[in-house]
């Protein structure tokens, strides 16, 4: 029965692939008409998570503002730490009717050898926001400002999974301040927060939306933010750069990618669409204000550079940790 089922799927995919390739050729022949059919947005993670919310919000705003003449159809394709969904997109080489958002696993799963595709198999379109990280300590802790940490030689922080932005930032902060921050991997953001509030780890590198609620309630004290400039949502939190640690600069770009080799006019088309999204009131209300990200538009070229830099950072860290050779 399994054999029959998987055979059916393979067969179905092959037909789909053929059709899509044909469509892709048709599109490049008459790019002016792009897009002329609905676009699939593959979400490599489950419903309700960060990636899912981001993808669905972008799709929702584009539809609400009627920026494209066709529909965007979000679809969750989970499994393999993102590998299943991302490979499904990358497989449609040259086809401008598949979209995906970028996440940490976008880089880390391929680096681990867990995915047949990597960031090189995608065309970056544009980014429409950046999400910084906020370094926090519990309010009960004795550390009032970043430099106070230098009084103590060793700390622990919680991270979601082994290779994460929090782990990366712990390493960067350790090097910059001359202290040691060891990362303790947990299974979810909730567990990390629990460990931080319960005093089982000492410092945290949190998303703005996670940090906001706890800071407002007076449970956590911010020390610094990892963006180049202060975030409009947190005007009182100094950047690492201001505090003299310019090398600690790392944000997550919220952007869209397509499979490799889509025609350049498609990239230009999406840059236009996403620029409108980035500056829209709807995007601000439905995403920026809700998740306290920094509004920012980055074009395809700039986004590509960031993707390459992020990948290099993860690669270095994983080599240092001995995870990869």
């Amino acid at each position: 029965m399994t054999y029959g089922l998987s055979n059916f799927v393979k067969h179905g995919r092959a037909v789909g692939l053929g059709l899509l390739t044909a469509a892709a050729i048709a599109v490049s022949a008459a790019a002016a008409e792009y897009p002329d059919k609905d676009i699939k947005m593959i979400i490599p993670f489950g419903a309700g998570g960060g990636s899912d919310t981001l993808a669905r919000t972008i799709a929702g705003v584009i539809e609400e503002m009627k920026l494209i003449p066709v529909k965007i159809l979000p679809e969750n394709r989970t499994g393999g730490s993102g590998a299943v969904g991302y490979s499904a997109v990358a497989k449609e080489k040259g086809d401008p009717y598949h979209l995906a958002t970028v996440s940490v696993s976008f880089f880390t799963t391929p680096l681990l050898g867990g995915s047949p595709v990597s960031y090189k198999d995608f065309t970056p379109l544009a980014a429409i926001a950046q999400s910084p990280y906020i370094m926090v300590v519990p309010t009960s802790s004795e550390y009032q400002k970043l430099d106070d940490l230098k009084k103590t030689p060793r700390f622990t922080t919680g991270t979601t999974g082994v290779v994460s932005d929090a782990a990366l930032l712990a390493k960067m902060t350790s090097n910059a301040l001359g202290i040691q921050i060891d990362s303790v991997p947990f299974d979810g953001e909730g567990e990390v927060m629990g460990a931080l509030l319960g005093g089982h780890v000492n410092v945290g590198f949190l998303n703005p939306s996670e940090a906001m609620a706890q800071m407002k309630a007076g449970k956590l004290r911010p020390l610094a933010i990892t963006s180049a400039e202060r975030s409009p949502a947190f005007p009182d939190i100094p950047t690492f750069k201001e505090l003299g640690y310019g090398e600690i600069l790392h944000t997550q770009l919220r952007g869209l990618v397509m499979p490799a080799d889509v025609p350049p006019e498609v990239v230009t088309y999406w840059e236009g669409v996403l620029q409108k999204v980035a500056t829209s009131e709807q995007w601000k209300k439905q995403y920026i204000d809700r998740f306290h990200d920094i509004p920012d538009y980055v074009d395809a070229k700039g986004f590509k550079e960031v993707l390459e830099r992020t990948n290099a950072r993860y690669e270095t860290m994983m080599k240092e940790l001995g995870i990869i050779k």
């Binding site: 489950g46 419903a47 309700g48 998570g49 899912d52 919310t53 979810g188 953001e189 909730g190 567990e191 927060m193 629990g194 509030l197 996670e210 609620a213 706890q214």
Partner: peptide, 13 residues
Amino acid sequence: GIPGSATTAVMMG
């Protein structure tokens, strides 16, 4: 505001 399980994490969403 801490989701302690996979299900409550989705509810938090």
